[in-house]
């Protein structure tokens, strides 16, 4: 019987983990410990935005909000708190564990020299409001998020795939998507260029990096049975005798003759 492999997360896993291993945590600090961040958090709370959780991790504040509040929060941060740049926007796939995505907005304030991260959790099919009206950079970032994760975004002006081709199937960065692609991905270029009927002629992709085909004289040299490139494979072919250059003597190098050699026993010499 074939061993069962979980399909909801096909990413590589550690092949061995100690039973008693407890992963340490990156330290989280209270928001009150930083004056600037606590003020920002107060501004968010004052605007009647529900803050689910907030802490400081590696010098950056992380604020969890509800997904409905994302536009209001970002607008507030941009206009009131000086976070004028949205440097990054993407999602984390938690479908197998929590049934949805975690969307994060990485913000930067150039006047305060502070960075904070707004995070919200959405269900797999739950749409999220576009923030591209506030930050133009979200235009492409949201397209990428849709392309890679299949996160549905409302009110986006040009919702199309950005990195993958338009007729691509599947969302590559989901944990259910294998690294080397599904069947559609494996035959994509053959189907598109030559047509499905060419699959037999071109053959499947070779993903094994160490593969050597000893019958393929077109691409591999046959060690021991030297044949010209592209020659037919002949099973009762003569073995090519291996000859080394040194056998006939090499220019400037004399062959080793034991009786003429001198063995040095005194190591100090």
């Amino acid at each position: 019987m074939r061993a069962y492999t979980p399909k909801e997360n096909v990413q590589k896993k550690a092949y061995y983990t100690d039973r008693y291993w407890v992963a340490p945590q990156v330290a989280k600090f209270d928001v009150e410990s930083d004056a600037v961040f606590s003020e920002d958090l107060k501004a968010i709370k004052d605007a009647k935005i529900t803050v689910l959780e907030a802490f400081i991790q590696v010098d950056q504040m992380v604020v969890y909000i509800k997904p409905e509040d994302n536009v209001a929060t970002l607008e507030l941060l941009r206009d009131e708190c000086g976070y004028t740049q949205l440097s990054e926007l993407s999602a984390i796939d938690w479908i197998s564990k929590r049934g949805g995505f975690e969307v994060f907005y990485q913000m930067l304030s150039m006047t305060k020299r502070k960075r904070l991260r707004i995070k919200c959790f959405i269900d797999e099919k739950q749409p999220i409001e576009s923030v591209q009206s506030l930050f133009r950079s979200a235009d492409w970032a949201e397209r990428e998020m849709y392309d890679m994760f299949g996160v549905i975004i409302n009110n986006h002006p040009f919702m199309k795939r950005i990195l993958m081709p338009d007729d691509w199937e599947g969302h590559p960065l989901r944990k259910t998507y294998p690294l080397q692609g599904d069947e559609f991905a494996a035959w994509y270029e053959v189907d598109k260029i030559f047509g499905k009927e060419a699959r037999d002629i071109i053959g499947p992709e070779i993903r094994d990096t160490a593969r050597v085909d000893r019958y393929d004289t077109e691409r591999f040299a046959r060690l021991g049975h030297e044949v010209p490139k592209g020659a037919e494979f002949n099973p009762d072919q003569e073995k090519t005798p291996l000859a080394y250059q040194e056998d006939d003597g090499v220019f400037l190098i004399e062959g080793f003759e034991e009786d003429k050699s001198q063995i040095i026993r005194d190591r100090k010499r």
């Binding site: 599904d182 270029e189 992709e205």
Partner: peptide
């Protein structure tokens, strides 16, 4: 780049 997005050798095309 042994991934979903790369063609495994231009000789496929």
């Amino acid at each position: 780049f042994n991934t979903y997005a790369t063609v495994q050798g231009v000789d496929r095309v």
